[in-house]
Amino acid sequence: MSGHENASGAAGAEAYNFAYLDEQTKRMIRRAILKAVAIPGYQVPFASREMPMPYGWGTGGVQVTAACLTAEDRLKVIDQGADDTTNAVSIRKFFERTAGVKTTEETEQATIIQTRHRIPEAPLAEGQIMVFQVPIPEPLRFLEPRETETRKMHALEEYGLMHVKLYEDISVHGHIATTYAYPVLVEGRYVMDPSPIPKFDNPKLDDSPALMLFGAGREQRIYALPPHTRVQSLDFEDHPFDRGHWDEDCALCGDAGSYLDEVITDDAGGRIFVCSDTAHCRARRQAGHAGAASAPYEEAGA
């Protein structure tokens, strides 16, 4: 613990303890994380702190990351799959200044990956930690507004209501139209909101070798999936879970199997689809892959 003191000195934020939070707070958060790991999918309350950013910007994820970081860690931060969007850039800069840790954009190099709304395309490995930013941890919230009641429903495994939502989806849209924050059943016990990741990423949660931690700052909850946890997406027998697909390939790297973002290119209906995971897309282009709209690969600044 004492080894962390003043480790951030070189980064110019001498007034702060390593990774911004004081050691007692990190201890409290680690206790909640340990409990969450011990009961996969169970939402553990914790005394969430005010962070120097507004709620909804990842205060839960930042606290979990701060509690997990060591000086040797290499941090990657993504927002909607991209390393260079506002949320990702500001959180990465925050930890560069307050913890002085090395950062990376390559999934394989990272030991801790804080994410908003995506799981990277590159397969995760043993020893990596994924930290998810969670706005609303309670999957039953929009069906049952009472916290006392939802807790009881979790305790007694009364999850019929979750299927009422999926039923309603099918009756209105003809298929399960929940495309993100798609509820999952963890180890056959707790129903969990996997944070607003697209349902495309749900299969990556199942039996993942990495540790998955979920932090909700405003709602003051932490939950977790230890490595190699069984995670099933809820569905009906006659309407099985479908992760979705695109008719297009990535216009930049030509990948046919990654999660794509739609990009409007003009005001005449022109659009292309590109990988949401920017690090994955760049690595493929570096390796010589090309899509329909791509120019030859050049290093930035070259």
């Binding site: 019929g160 039923y167 099918i170 009906f236």
Partner: peptide
């Protein structure tokens, strides 16, 4: 339909049709 089906789903029925 979802109102009527809720008790069935609570009892573990998982066949939409």
């Amino acid at each position: 339909g979802a109102n009527v089906g809720e008790r069935l789903m609570a009892r573990g029925q998982r066949h939409y049709g």
